[in-house]
């Protein structure tokens, strides 16, 4: 596909995704934050369902050598970077998707978060230009390099190559694990709603007493 074709396909995908996210109020930040802080799982369940479909979808195509999986070395920086990102998204109340979507709804706070994401990226480019870490794509080897805290590259395709089992089998296993998490959440929600009905009445009683 031509470069312009790639840009057009991406724009169409982005537009539909933006529209669906706007209409459903899906938020990746909320999927994690609400589960941790408020024990509500509306977005978490949607995220898990998407990941199940993607795990099977991607690995089926990877099994037959199709698709464009991401290819770069990962390492300690992957964990550390997303740790910082995780703190940032909860503080900002938005992630990379919702900053764009909320900006489209006229939310100036989200636009502000987006601007400072750009500032953060530029600041990082200054630091990177001094220490050249993590290694740039051109010098990635695909193998562990402990001196630069890199673990190399591994995905469903390398699993298939190593074990001689189609990548889709691993994908189905991963989808199974995600489904188990999904089912545990649904059960937890059911348990949470049932006793609440029983306890609701006595819990209100002390509030009814006049304050002393």
């Amino acid at each position: 596909m031509s470069v312009v074709g790639q840009c057009i396909a991406s724009f169409i995908f982005g537009t539909v995704a933006g529209l669906l996210v706007q209409r459903s109020r899906f938020c990746n930040t909320a999927a994690l934050r609400d589960a941790i802080l408020f024990k509500t799982y509306r977005n978490t369940k949607a995220l898990l369902v998407a990941m199940m479909i993607l795990s099977v979808g991607f690995t089926v195509f990877i099994s037959v050598g199709q698709g464009h999986p991401m290819r770069f070395d990962v390492g300690l920086n992957t964990f550390a970077g997303l740790f910082l990102f995780g703190i940032g998204m909860v503080l900002a109340g938005a992630c990379t998707v919702s900053t764009w979507v909320k900006t489209g709804e006229g939310n100036i706070g989200a636009l502000w978060a987006l601007l400072f994401t750009f500032v953060g990226m530029f600041l990082f480019s200054l630091v990177w230009s001094a220490d050249y870490w993590p290694p740039p794509p051109a010098s990635m080897t695909g193998h562990p390099d402990l001196a630069s805290l890199q673990l190399g590259f591994a995905n469903a395709a390398t699993l298939q190559k190593t074990f001689g089992i189609p990548a889709a089998v691993f994908g189905l296993m991963q989808a199974g694990v995600l489904f188990a998490i999904y089912r545990a959440i649904v059960r937890k929600e059911r348990r949470a709603t049932q006793p609440a009905k029983v306890e609701a009445a006595p819990a209100l009683a002390p509030l009814a007493k006049p304050a002393e």
Partner: peptide, 15 residues
């Protein structure tokens, strides 16, 4: 602060 952390985090991890 959140925006800055997101920007730095994305670049540090490449994702």
């Amino acid at each position: 602060v959140g925006g800055l952390l997101m920007g730095v985090g994305i670049r540090l991890s490449f994702v």
